[in-house]
Structures are given as structure tokens and as C-alpha cells.
């Protein structure tokens, strides 16, 4: 009997997480429809594709962040990793190096920084917020030292062309990123090892007891986040065409906000990459939506901040109410069962 109830509860939790993503998606659609009502150009297919293209960077970062958040940790250093790997690979490309080399170097940079973060958090037991905050500062200075505080410009045309390639009228990078997000979602939700990440965040001691190598998976999560941050750096370099010293400054906060909007919990264990990706599209669409609404750009940060607070608080209140209701139902059921037995 208890067993069946557990299964029922599991399916309830499952449907709730689905609802969360669903709510985010509804919100995204609403955003587009409402802005579209004011200015029809906003929902033209061209603009929607454009909005997705502009949010690629955020999507990639948010997916990496989701891995770390799922294990119950946090990674603040991604903005700096983006900047450093973009400028290193930018310099390689500018000086005539091959694209392949630049990509490999960038990924290695992200991987090594992620590894350091992961080892610091798991082995030295430094709180991940502090560890990655310190790393953010260190990596940012490294970037300034590497570039001597100058912008990296004159990237070769063939590299910039990558972000502009189209297939069936849709940007190739967009297709790749969307497919990758879907694949990663199935990895995290359906494969045995993919579920480890959420299991660790949900109950770390429990994960240890059932034999999950917790520390290894935490390190892996940080490495993935670092690597994805450097891939985002490559996308940034390819899309923008130059790298300033402040590239990616403060982007980590936007990405965390995006992940949280998409239903990823900072406590760990809850969330999906699809939700995070939708959150990322919302965060980056607010910008262009304001342009289409002819609202001055200085409203941007106030609106995204209040949206974040309202959505998260509303979500928490809804979830708590649902929790209370299920607890009451369970209690009632227990009492009824008891009466029947008597």
C-alpha cells in the first residue's frame, strides 16, 4: 500500500515539474503574443528566429548552469570563462590559426577552469558560491593580462561566417543548439547516469548511500559548465565579431535568473535544461520586446528584475499550496484507512 502511494507521489512530483516548464513556456508565448498585439512585426517568423539566434549564447550558458544547479551547487565564474576563452581563441584566429585549434583551446580553457572549480568545491570543501566568485575575479584579471586590456578585433571572415550560415532558412547554430538541448534533456531525465545529477542535488547523503560517486559527478558538472561557457564564448566571438575586455560582464546573474525562471531550483534536484533554455529565451527577448514596444531601454533591468521576483515568489506560493494539499490528502487517507482497519 505504502509502495503504491510512493509511486503516486513520484508521478505527482513528475507532473509538477512538467507544469513548471509548461508555465514558463506559456509565459514565453504570452510575452510574444502580447508584444505582437502591440507591434505585429514582433511575431513575424523572421523576428522569432532572430530572437532565438540572439538567445543562443544564454541558452548554452543556462544549460551548463543547470548541470551545476541540479547538483545543488552554483557557478558564478561563467561570465569570465566566456570572456577569457573568447579572447584567447580570438587572438589565435586573428593571428591566422585554424578554427579547429581555436575551438580546442577554448574548450580546454573552460574545462580546466571548471575542473579547478569542481576540485575546490569537492576536495577543499569551499562553498561553491565563494569558490566560483573568487575564480570569476581571477579569470577576469587573466583575460585583462592576456589581452593587455585591449579589444580583440579583426576576426577572420570565415569564422564570423559560421554564425550566419543558414540551412532551410534557419540558422545552423540555432538548429545545433536546439537539438543538443533536447538530447541533453533526455540524457538528464532518462539515462541512469544523467539522473545522478538531480539525485545528488535532491539528497546528497542519500546519493552517497546508494553508491553514486557524488564528488566525481559534481566535478563533472563544473567541467561541463566551464566547457559550455567557453563554447558560448566562441558563439559570442563569431556573432559579435570582436571581443571587448568586458565581454560577458555580469552575464552570470542573467543566466542564473534565466535558469530560475525556467524552474531550476537553486537548492538542487529540480529543473530541466529545456526549462532553463526557455528561461534564457525569455530573458534575452525582454530586451528586444522593449524595443518593439518603443519603451526606452533603461527599463530593461527593472522589468527583468521584477519579473524574476514575481514569477519565483508566485511559483513558490503555488508549490507550497500544492504541497499542503497533498499532505492533507495523505493525512486524511491515513485516517480513513485506520478507521477501516478498526
Amino acid at each position: 500500500m505504502a509502495h503504491i502511494k510512493e509511486v503516486k507521489d513520484m508521478s505527482k512530483v513528475k507532473s509538477m515539474t512538467k507544469q513548471r516548464e509548461f508555465r514558463t513556456l506559456v509565459f514565453l508565448v504570452l510575452l510574444f503574443v502580447i508584444v505582437g498585439l502591440v507591434n505585429a512585426d514582433f511575431i513575424s517568423s523572421g523576428n522569432i528566429l532572430n530572437a532565438t539566434k540572439n538567445s543562443l549564447l544564454y541558452i548554452v550558458l543556462a544549460v551548463g548552469m543547470t548541470f551545476v544547479l541540479l547538483t545543488g551547487e552554483i557557478d558564478i565564474s561563467i561570465g569570465a570563462v566566456l570572456g577569457l576563452s573568447a579572447s584567447v581563441s580570438g587572438v589565435i584566429l586573428r593571428d591566422g590559426g585554424s578554427i579547429f585549434l581555436a575551438v580546442i583551446i577554448a574548450i580546454m580553457i573552460g574545462g580546466v577552469i571548471g575542473l579547478i572549480n569542481g576540485l575546490g568545491v569537492t576536495k577543499l570543501k569551499i562553498s561553491s558560491f565563494i569558490m566560483t566568485l573568487g575564480m570569476l575575479e581571477i579569470v577576469r584579471v587573466t583575460q585583462v593580462m592576456f589581452t593587455n586590456g585591449k579589444w580583440v578585433e579583426n576576426l577572420p571572415e570565415n569564422f564570423k561566417h559560421i554564425s550566419r550560415m543558414n540551412m532551410f532558412g534557419i540558422n545552423v547554430l540555432t538548429i545545433i543548439v536546439i537539438l543538443a538541448v533536447i538530447l541533453i534533456h533526455f540524457y538528464l531525465s532518462n539515462s541512469r547516469k544523467g539522473r545522478y545529477f538531480a539525485a545528488i542535488g535532491d539528497n546528497e547523503d542519500g546519493a552517497v548511500l546508494i553508491g553514486i560517486p557524488v564528488n566525481r559527478y559534481k566535478v563533472i558538472a563544473f567541467v561541463i559548465s566551464g566547457v559550455l561557457a567557453s563554447i558560448a564564448g566562441l558563439i559570442f566571438a563569431s556573432q559579435i565579431g570582436f571581443i571587448s575586455t568586458t565581454a560577458g560582464l555580469g552575464i552570470e546573474m542573467t543566466v542564473i535568473a534565466a535558469a530560475v525562471l525556467g524552474g531550476v531550483s537553486l537548492r538542487g534536484g529540480i529543473g530541466s535544461v529545456i526549462g532553463a533554455a526557455i528561461g534564457a529565451i525569455i530573458m534575452s527577448s525582454i530586451n528586444s520586446a522593449l524595443v518593439f514596444l518603443k519603451v526606452p531601454a533603461f527599463w530593461n533591468s527593472a522589468i527583468s528584475g521584477s519579473l524574476l521576483i514575481i514569477i519565483v515568489v508566485a511559483d513558490a506560493l503555488i508549490a507550497r499550496r500544492a504541497n499542503n494539499r497533498t499532505r492533507k490528502e495523505r493525512l486524511n487517507a491515513r485516517i480513513l484507512n485506520y478507521k477501516e482497519e478498526v
Binding site: 552554483i74 558560491f129 546573474m253 542564473i256 535568473a257 530560475v260 531550483s265 537553486l266 537548492r267 526606452p296 533603461f298 527599463w299 530593461n300 533591468s301 527593472a302 522589468i303 527583468s304 528584475g305 521584477s306 524574476l308 521576483i309 519565483v312 515568489v313 513558490a316 506560493l317 507550497r320
Partner: peptide, 29 residues
């Protein structure tokens, strides 16, 4: 918001960070 909705402090103050600097920009604007 933190004490009564029990949302993580990090999330609320992150939203607050965006909101307050946003309000400052709006006022200047």
C-alpha cells in the same frame, strides 16, 4: 519575500539587484 515565501535568499536578492539598479536607471532616464 525571503522570510515569508521561503524562496532562496540568493534568488530574491538577485532579482532585487536587477530591480533596484533598474529603478535607478529608470529614475535617471
Amino acid at each position: 519575500l525571503i522570510a515569508y515565501s521561503k524562496v532562496q535568499a540568493m534568488v530574491i536578492t538577485l532579482g532585487g539587484m536587477l530591480l533596484y539598479s533598474g529603478i535607478a536607471l529608470v529614475l535617471v532616464g
